[in-house]
Amino acid sequence: MKRASLFTAVTLTVIGLAGPTLAQTPKGPLVNGEWLEKNLSDPKVRVVEVSVEPGLFERGHIPNAQNVVWHTDLVDTVRRDIATKEKFQDLVRKLGIDKDTTVVLYGDNNNWFAAWGAWIFKSYGFDNIKLLDGGRKKWEADKRPFDSRVASVAPSQVSIGEPNSKLRARLSDVNDAVSKKSNATIVDIRSPDEYSGKVFAPPGSQELSVRAGHVPGAINVPWVRAVNEDGTIKSADELKKLYAAAGIDDSKPIIVYCRIGERSSHTWFVLSQILGYDVRNYDGSWTEYGNTVGLPVVNVAGTVWGGK
């Protein structure tokens, strides 16, 4: 264990030395804890936590961070949809975010919901959106401080337009890809057991589909393959190789999906923001496709819903 932590420390030092000059906003879509800790009081940097476990933010968050609740803030709570323009505008104004603010998102669960947040921010035309590499877990593991007080911020007067539909895939886009009307590559980022149809949903998940399996033609690359042991995202070169080996590259547009669209936001972020591919997130995901009457499904495991 000691050896492992020593190794990590050495690796971190090497990365730190090779990294960009500190205090300047990093060019890429990721920031590390070291940079963030030095820039927490910068009024042009707004740190936003998007975690799913209740009470996590309140019991301790990155100093000056603001809290966003996925279940109520980033979605429409009545229709199944992303937050409306009006709702999201109210939210970003309250968070004091302007068009030129650098927004750093982070959260629990390997940044799944933070990545969903990044996808929504990007959809509504915010360009300076970054993820804290490794999320809460890495920040904590690096022994950086948490705070339980909520910082008050001056609201902004930003105005936003309709969301950019080019970042989002709808059921019709998926159908077009299945029936070869479009040449999009579909990537299923769920676990191999969900992909094969062995299970309907990960253990403990409420939102179920009444059919198991995957979209015909979808390639299975579980989201977790894009991250290192410590939760940070792999280097661009590694990612490029990894996805190319599965037949995913920038030659064709890509559609990613999972169960409800949150884990696929993670892969959407990796493919679009880090590798620069043309990617749409299909937030309807398996709970829409797998429940739609009459659509073709591949169920390798042969699991039957409700049957013994």
Partner: peptide, 15 residues
């Protein structure tokens, strides 16, 4: 007071 400065927002304090 620290976690939810405005209790009238309609949100409940976590857990």
């Amino acid at each position: 007071g620290a976690w939810l400065p405005d209790p009238s927002s309609g949100r409940l304090p976590p857990d």
